[in-house]
């Protein structure tokens, strides 16, 4: 489970690593919104350009990242081909495949572009931001709202992301063990889903109780140290850059 680098913090000492968490998350929000509003080709190119710049700035390990993104590549290909063949329209003269339509290919590419931008934004932000900062920023946002247990929600967010790689690792391990015992011979889909989920869930419930105990043992308290955020001029500059990209994509 340790080898999944996507969604995982990769230590570094770059401008993006040191950036104020609040502004970084604001940038993430803006860029993923921009991705959903993007329509024209130059919108996509602009966003990709910005992201490639950010990836270089953050000095994240390209090869490991690409390997993790294979999964999304598969989804993107699927989405493009589904759209290409299901959306009715004119055939492409240079690519005369039966059922393929120009409108479909365009729609598919658009969708794929959006997905790719969102995934990349996320890879950059999660790669340069420790989970604790995510929790702290959310706590900071919720702090002024009355009756909202900000510290508790922050803990939930941090734990959720800490648990995802653990869950995926456990799931893969368990599926391998079941394959070794011939689960594939089971044709009944109910039994198959049950045998896939039951041991997995049981183990995870037990493990969750252990996490609870470990947190309790170290005196977990919702009245806890709050983060102090500091933002530099450079952080604001990056934020303004993202804001202008967002405004440009939305308004043109």
């Amino acid at each position: 489970m340790a080898e999944i680098t996507f969604f995982q913090y990769i230590y570094g000492d770059t401008i993006l690593h040191r950036m104020d968490g609040r502004l970084k998350l604001a940038c993430m929000l803006l860029l993923s919104l921009a991705a959903s509003f993007a329509t024209a080709l130059h919108h996509y190119l602009l966003a990709f350009g910005l992201l490639i710049f950010a990836l270089r700035l953050a000095k994240l390990p390209w090869t490991a990242l690409l390997k993790d993104l294979r999964f999304f590549g598969l989804i993107i290909l699927l989405v493009i081909s589904i759209n290409a063949w299901t959306i009715p329209g004119d055939p492409i003269p240079t690519l005369p495949l039966p059922g393929l339509s120009r409108q479909g290919v365009v729609a598919g590419l658009r969708f794929a572009g959006r997905l790719a931008i969102i995934v990349l934004v996320c890879a950059v932000v999660t790669g340069t931001t420790p989970l604790r900062t995510f929790g702290q920023v959310i706590e900071w946002v919720l702090r002024p709202i009355p009756f909202v247990p900000a510290a508790r929600i922050a803990t939930m967010v941090t734990l959720t992301f800490a648990l995802i790689p653990v869950l995926l690792g456990q799931f893969a391990e368990m599926m391998a063990a079941q394959k070794a015992r011939g689960i594939e011979l089971r044709k009944n889909p109910v039994r198959r889903l049950y045998y896939a989920v039951f041991p997995f869930l049981e183990q995870m419930l037990r493990r969750t109780d252990q996490i609870v105990e470990a947190m309790e043992a170290r005196g977990y308290s919702e009245v806890r140290t709050r983060a102090v955020f500091k933002s530099t001029k450079r952080d604001w500059l990056i934020f303004l850059l993202c804001l202008s990209v967002f405004l440009y994509v939305c308004c043109s």
Binding site: L131, A162, Q210, E213, Y220, T225, R226
Partner: peptide, 29 residues
């Protein structure tokens, strides 16, 4: 200190993991 620490880490980095306790005591950063 528990028997199987592997199952009980709550932080994503070594620093976060160790900071968890003092943060519970609500000490200044």
């Amino acid at each position: 200190v528990f028997q199987d620490p592997d199952r009980q880490f709550v932080g994503q980095t070594v620093t976060e993991e160790v900071a968890f306790g003092p943060e519970n005591l609500n000490l200044p950063p």
